[in-house]
């Protein structure tokens, strides 16, 4: 699903990522961890082509990120689900409309977009908040709506940047359970976090970024959220 060959990313004189080599297989669940500012977000942004590598090759879903043309980017992103730390919901529409918008972008009719949106809100336990606006939701609820939106395009790859960073432990565990369920359906998940408890709870392969370098730690399942 993801292959990085000697990927380096520099911002002027600052090297954010240095000679990254990694492979993530289809259907895998991978944690991406490291201290704040280590380069986790930069790596994720490159995966959905918000940033380009300075050197090296990055292949995502069979596409070379660097050679994607601008007009190919929207189609590429429609195969990737994105979950952000602050959810990034659009303020002027309800939870359901936030999700249905993605369906409309995909070319679905209004009614069909709303129907699928409701299904996904049910999946994330947010169907009772469908008509509420982001300002009326708690941080955890926003995250669940954000996750439902990311699933609207039935993505082959789900990228989550600190999705539980603003959540209390119980809500974080609940979110993790949903991510795991999505992964069981075959979606590759890359979840960035600096929460060691969460990593320990699920015990999956972990990619650690330190000083711009990435190393992979193999782990076995220790305990999984029920």
């Amino acid at each position: 699903m993801i292959r990085a060959f000697h990927v380096t990313k520099r911002y002027g004189s600052i090297t954010a990522l240095r000679d990254v080599n990694v492979q993530i297989r289809p259907g895998e669940f991978v944690f991406l961890t490291g201290a704040s500012g280590a380069g986790k977000t930069t790596f994720l942004r490159m995966l959905y082509r918000a940033e380009l590598p300075t050197s090296g090759q990055l292949i995502v879903d069979g596409r070379n990120i660097a050679s994607l043309r601008s007009r190919e980017v929207p189609g590429f992103r429609r195969r990737i689900g994105l979950v952000f730390q602050d959810a990034r919901l659009i303020d002027d529409r309800s939870s359901l409309e936030n999700i249905a918008f993605v369906g409309r972008v995909l070319g679905l009719a209004r009614g069909e977009s709303r129907r699928r949106g409701m299904e996904l809100l049910k999946l994330t336990g947010m169907d009772h908040r469908a008509e509420l606006f982001p300002a009326q939701l708690s941080a955890g609820e926003k995250q669940r709506v954000g996750l439902a939106r990311a699933l609207m395009s039935a993505p082959v790859l789900l990228l989550a940047d600190e999705p539980t960073g603003n959540l209390d432990p119980d809500t974080a565990i609940e979110m993790l359970r949903i991510f795991r369920a999505i992964n069981r359906r075959g979606t590759t998940v890359v979840l960035a976090t600096h929460d060691p408890d969460m990593i320990a709870a699920l015990g999956r392969r972990t990619l650690v970024i330190e000083g711009g370098r990435l190393r992979s730690l193999e782990r076995t399942v220790e305990s999984e959220p029920a």
């Binding site: 007009r71 929207p74 189609g75 992103r77 994105l82 919901l89 303020d91 972008v105 609207m152």
Partner: peptide
């Protein structure tokens, strides 16, 4: 602009 950037991230084309 943040809303527009979000639209782009979820796959909205420039045409939209």
């Amino acid at each position: 602009r943040r809303e527009i950037e979000t639209m782009r991230l979820v796959g909205a084309s420039e045409a939209v």
